[in-house]
Computed example of a mutant assay.
Amino acid sequence: MNKTDELGPVVEMEATRYSADGVSPVEVNVPTEVPVTIVANDTEVATLMCTPTDLPHLVLGFLFSAGVIRSKEELGACRVDPVRWVAECELSRDPDVELLNRRVYTSGCGKGVMFANVAELAARRPLTTALTVTSRQIDRLASALQGASPLYRRTRGIHTAALSEAGSLPTAWFDDVGRHNAVDKAIGHGLAEGTDLGACVLLSSGRTSSEILHKARRAGIPVVMSRSVPTHQSVLRARDMGVTLIGRAKGKGFVVYAHAERVVPATPSSGSPDR
Rank of each mutant, 00 (worst) to 15 (best):
A46M: 04
L99Q: 15
A199N: 15
G178F: 03
I69R: 05
S228T: 09
R103M: 06
A119C: 08
R79H: 15
G108A: 11
R102F: 07
A162P: 01
N29P: 03
A20Q: 10
L197N: 05
H232V: 15
I38D: 05
R84K: 14
D81M: 08
G198E: 04
K72N: 12
R156F: 10
L245C: 06
G157D: 11
A87V: 02
D81E: 08
S205E: 05
V10E: 06
V201E: 03
E27P: 01
A20T: 12
S234M: 03
A258I: 01
E12Q: 14
G110F: 01
A172R: 09
V83R: 14
R136V: 09
W173A: 05
A162F: 02
V28R: 02
H214K: 04
A142M: 06
T43L: 00
K3Y: 11
R136P: 00
D21Y: 13
P265T: 10
V45G: 03
T195K: 11
T4K: 12
T51H: 09
L48D: 04
I187Q: 06
V255T: 15
E120H: 11
R207V: 12
P56T: 05
L191G: 03
L100R: 00
D42E: 14
M114E: 10
P150M: 07
S226T: 14
R136A: 09
T134Y: 06
V263I: 15
V30R: 05
G253S: 04
R103K: 15
A266E: 15
G61F: 00
E165I: 12
L197S: 03
E74V: 01
D42F: 06
K252S: 13
A161Y: 01
P230F: 09
V45L: 01
G247E: 06
T129M: 02
I221W: 01
T47K: 00
S149Y: 11
R79M: 13
T129Y: 02
V10C: 06
E44G: 03
